[in-house]
Nucleic acid binder design. Structure first.
Lengths: 291, 291
DNA sequence: CATAATAGCTGACTTTAGTCAGACATTATG
DNA sequence: CATAATGTCTGACTAAAGTCAGCTATTATG
């Protein structure tokens, strides 16, 4: 850690502190203290469990209780006992609460838009923000099973195709490749897994099954901003577990030597190289793993 | 502004809010409210003028005055009237104050170090942080005249040489180039300007004079994270003004076609292309501007 | 089933932050 | 040189945030 990197880190901290402070104070324009606004936002973002909100915002139980009462009096929320455990409570936004929540969302959106609009290269700025956000909160990346035709899954696949087109010497056209039909990557034949950081997809992997004992791993991709955190390994472990769940005995995959990090990952995870098993024009390496 | 970029921006905001909050609360471990700690840090960082600290931290004059009194009672600072204007006051850390300041610095440093140490690619993370910090706070980039042998100037020059080595097809070895002696870039012969963002250099330009009416512009460089903000133009305007100040009538410079953004900048700023005027092996374009 | 643990609520606080009017000394300006 | 403007300080306030002990209701556990 050089003195220089400390200074650069500090400059970053100062810049974002100022920005965060400005966003916070813009929340005050709606005639409600910041604490109450933060609770409305937490509930709107889907945190309904009172204890969960409390932990997220780092509030004392007494303070939390009072904030909930004041929001209830304002008619923005209702609370009720938790169905599974009557000691706990859940909070929900009323219609008026949802309106307030959207108003707060609009304030944030407007700030974000104006900031990005002022940037000479908004895309680079967003990529830098992704990297910072993922580095700061990388323990919070979850893996979920989704439909490969869903919007976030398609976004990952598009990014994957674009990266292949960039990195393969031959380019990449998905229409020339063995593109699995969606049903092959949905239960009971297969699965499609997404790595999700704070609601946004940052990686994917597909399990293409036929109903028989042999299946294929397809479309392993990690957002460049999320690389280096061991996410590919986690996704591979999860997809292998999903395969075992579907009673699949043998996994295969194909890849290209222009993706050395993928080759290294497969070799390290116990995959063994085998002969070509398809006539896809793009791959030049083929692997197998017996579960 | 796509919904996706809004979501990415939000994810960033959430991640840094949590980080900033954690840093703030770590400051509370030293038995002093955050407001007082921020004042100690502002003074330690070199902001001695009370009005300046007040503007920087956005504090009311009454509140500021009380914070200063409490720090004085604690024995961390002394205040005295400003030598030039007895209405103003300046604050200074005492020995005990300097110790407290270092303790706060250590807290920040430790957080920064642990965060960067956990990152798989700390250098990429720092570059991303630079880009975010500069994009958020780019109105606050100041241009200063410095000694070209000073540490921050040398850091810029090293970065400049490294970039040339990367971008020129021939590579770049400063020993083979016309490296101006430092005196030529210091008053009264010349000048060396640095663009400084929050204490860190992000760009430079040199004016190499001989005492006569013709001088050369050398070493124009902008940190990649600070490009696109019109900083090169600002530096060029500042260095031209410095040249006029030194009664210089004609400016020259040389550059290489591998740096198209530089060529475009010079052409747009009214420089005209002239014949080669030196035998430096690297440049292939030569410009002149009459002031 | 007695006891401990958990989740939230209430009352009675304290601390911190922030506001505002007015006082005072000093400096700038017509 | 009178007047305006500036920078700081003080007193008197409010709002917001946070703390803590003790309460109730519920659930988990030996």
């Amino acid at each position: 850690m050089t003195p220089d990197s400390t200074a650069r880190f500090r400059r970053f901290a100062r810049a974002v502190t100022a920005e965060v402070g400005a966003l916070d104070s813009s929340f005050l324009g709606r005639g409600r203290p910041l604490g109450a606004a933060r609770v409305v936002n937490a509930i709107g973002a889907g945190r309904t469990d009172v204890a969960e909100i409390r932990a997220y915002l780092g509030l004392d139980s007494g303070l939390m209780s009072r904030l909930l009462r004041s929001l209830e009096e304002e008619g923005l929320i209702t609370t009720e006992p938790h169905p599974d455990d009557a000691r706990r409570r859940v909070a929900r936004l009323t219609e008026a609460g949802r309106r307030e929540f959207s108003a707060y969302e609009e304030i944030s959106d407007a700030r974000a838009a104006s900031l990005l609009a002022r940037s000479p290269n908004a895309d680079a700025l967003l990529r830098a923000m992704d990297l910072v956000a993922l580095s700061l909160g990388r323990d919070r990346i979850a893996i979920e099973v989704v439909d490969p035709r869903s919007e976030p899954a398609r976004a990952c696949l598009e990014a994957y195709y674009a990266e292949l087109a960039r990195r393969l010497k031959t380019g990449f056209d998905v229409k020339l490749s063995c593109d699995p039909e969606a049903e092959a990557m949905i239960r009971p034949r297969g699965a499609f897994l997404l790595a999700i950081a704070d609601g946004l997809p940052v990686g994917c992997v597909g399990l293409k099954g036929s109903g028989g004992p042999v299946a294929e791993i397809k479309r392993l991709w990690i957002d460049p901003a999320a690389r280096g955190f061991g996410l590919a390994r986690r996704l591979m472990e999860a997809v292998e577990a999903a395969a075992r769940d579907l009673s699949i005995a043998v996994l295969r995959l194909d890849t290209n030597s222009a993706l050395p990090e993928a080759l290294a990952l497969y070799r390290k995870a116990g995959w063994v190289e085998i002969d070509r098993f398809n006539d896809d024009p793009y791959p030049d390496h083929f692997f197998e793993k017996v579960l």
